[in-house]
């Protein structure tokens, strides 16, 4: 019993460490090949289109509604002591510092991260990755680096879009629907919002982009066990990415602000 328990615990620890190590190695090799010529620009752009342009719709919708509900909720609270003007500040700060980057990253994880893991997983089980190696081409460089680089650049872009539509959503609900004084709404927002709030949010988003792409690539790249394995890798990549993003969010926030 006890021996079994110890075995299981140590097995789990070893598994987690191995996963962490694998993800770390994947990160380093992915970044390493990003600085080796020739850079596969057309691959990067294809991934940017997939990760950035095609996620824009879902990011805009989630961003807008998040801003709207933030306005609604904070209005309820602030009205109790007559500080409705602060709704704009709350929406803007929450969006730029926290919800913009995190929600965008989680949406991209769900949409693009899972697809990355599934795509690379399929390539692994159908020997397409081996085919690349046999052609004397480095699969990391062709498959992982473009995805990591594209995520790194696209997440901040999506985040700033999300920040903006979130604030617009908050403005719509706050000013147009709940009738908060527009001057107070805008002025208090611009007064308390700092450029650093926006920039740090974007830095966070870039970090989340790396996390989600590296995890998805790692899980996909080392898929085992046919179609079933692809499904497993996809699920695991989404779970690990999401959890890692939230943990990293705390760490980065405590470091930055």
């Amino acid at each position: 019993m006890l021996v079994n328990l110890i075995k299981r615990i140590s097995g789990t620890v070893v598994y987690i460490l191995r996963e962490l190590g694998g993800i770390g190695l994947m990160f380093f090799s992915g970044v390493y090949w990003a600085f080796r010529r020739p850079l596969k620009l057309n691959y990067i752009f294809k991934q940017m289109e997939f990760i950035g342009v095609k996620s824009a719709g879902v990011v805009i919708i989630t961003g807008t509604f998040t801003g709207m509900v933030l306005a609604l909720q904070s209005y309820y609270g602030f009205r109790k002591f007559g500080a409705e003007g602060l709704v704009g500040t709350t929406v803007a700060l929450s969006m730029t510092r926290e919800l913009g980057p995190v929600l965008t990253s989680l949406m991209v994880t769900g949409r693009a991260g899972s697809a990355m893991a599934a795509e690379l997983g399929t390539m692994r089980v159908t020997e397409q990755i081996d085919a690349l190696i046999v052609m004397a081409l480095n699969p990391i460089k062709y498959l992982v680096t473009p995805r990591v680089v594209a995520s790194f650049f696209m997440l901040p872009v999506l985040t700033i879009v999300s920040d903006f539509v979130g604030i617009v959503g908050g403005w719509l609900v706050g000013v147009k629907l709940l009738g908060i004084n527009e001057g107070a709404f805008i002025n208090k927002m611009t007064k308390y919002l700092e450029l650093d709030d926006i920039y740090n949010g974007l830095v966070k988003a870039a970090c989340f982009g790396i996390i989600l792409s590296v995890v998805a690539c790692y899980k996909g790249f080392y898929t085992k066990g046919g179609a079933e394995g692809v499904g497993r890798s996809t699920t695991e990549s989404v779970v690990i990415s999401s959890v890692s993003i939230l943990i990293a969010d705390y760490v980065l926030t405590s470091l930055m602000f």
């Binding site: 399929t122 159908t126 046999v134």
Partner: peptide, 20 residues
């Protein structure tokens, strides 16, 4: 190894064509 591999061609079991 990559230099040696350039002398090789390979046909995989499921052909391993790039889906994309």
């Amino acid at each position: 190894l990559n230099e040696v591999r350039k002398k090789f061609g390979m046909l995989f079991q499921e052909a391993a064509l790039f889906d994309s």
